[in-house]
Amino acid sequence: MGTTSGTRLVVGVWEHSPFGRFCDVMVEEATGHRTLLAPTPDTADYVSATYTFDSVDIAPVTLTVDNALWAVRHRALTLDWQVGRRRLLGALLHLVPSGLREKETWAQAIDPVARIVQPGVRTHGTAGNDRTEWYAADDVRAIVAATGTWRGASLGTLAPLRPPVSFGFSSAPRSPSLTSVTSIVRDDDTR
């Protein structure tokens, strides 16, 4: 999501990882400075191996969900947002069988379409460190409101994610969204 302060945020809720379930936040300030908020050194190393940051802040990152109300807390960030209706794209993604959706060839085939439908968004690309990454999204919901603080200053209100974030090969959707996605990373050295 974007904010009127110019700070853009991508909250990652990792349901499955080598470290179990965890939450991280990628923050890009209006200046372009990119910070990773991660709960442990291991999760910070894991995320930083795929995405690019100028700084990393390791401290507990908590997520609470109460129906449509979501909240993230970290010593440098408070962020509350409300999730709205499923977007048309989310409904269309539900029609793609999961077996197909997670295939690399599918991600490669729909990448040009994703770039047109969601400028800045890619579904397949280079993850750095001789790795390839692709995304298998299965739902997209609107974020309809958000408030919070970053390092003690107000984030303002919800705004489009503009300019695109630059943590990796892809940005997030321009319209503030909650996207359910599987991220698949292949180490190209082990092909």
Rank of each mutant, 00 (worst) to 15 (best):
Y51K: 06
V13G: 01
Q118I: 08
P176K: 08
L158S: 06
F53A: 01
W14R: 08
A136K: 04
V181C: 13
F167A: 13
E133R: 10
R122L: 06
V25Y: 00
V47P: 02
A107E: 08
L9T: 07
A137L: 02
R87A: 04
A49T: 02
P97H: 05
H124M: 04
A136L: 10
M1S: 11
H33D: 15
W150S: 05
D130W: 12
T64H: 09
T7S: 07
C23M: 01
M26N: 06
R34D: 02
T147D: 15
L63G: 11
S17K: 03
T179H: 09
P112H: 10
R122V: 04
L79D: 03
T4G: 07
T50G: 05
S166R: 13
A153R: 15
R101G: 07
R186D: 04
D139C: 12
S5P: 02
T123D: 06
E15R: 09
A109L: 14
L100M: 08
R87W: 00
A49H: 04
V72F: 03
G6F: 01
A127F: 14
V72N: 06
L63P: 10
I110L: 08
L95I: 01
D57E: 14
D54I: 00
S171Y: 05
D111H: 12
D54H: 14
A49R: 10
A109V: 15
W106S: 04
R115H: 12
Q82H: 13
W150M: 02
G99F: 02
V13K: 07
F53T: 00
V47C: 09
G148R: 05
N129I: 01
G2K: 05
E29V: 10
D57F: 06
G168T: 15
D54S: 09
I116C: 06
P163H: 09
H16D: 05
V61N: 03
W70I: 00
V165A: 12
V140I: 14
E133T: 09
D139Y: 05
R174H: 03
H94M: 06
V47K: 02
R141S: 08
S183I: 12
T126P: 09
W81D: 14
A159H: 04
F22H: 07
A30F: 04
T182K: 14
S171E: 09
L63F: 14
N129F: 11
R186A: 14
P119C: 10
A145V: 03
Q108S: 10
P41N: 11
H124N: 02
W81E: 12
G125F: 08
S154P: 11
V165M: 15
P18D: 02
A172G: 13
G125Q: 05
V140A: 12
G84C: 06
F169V: 14
W81S: 15
D189E: 04
D189P: 00
D189R: 13
A172F: 06
P97E: 02
H33P: 00
D189F: 04
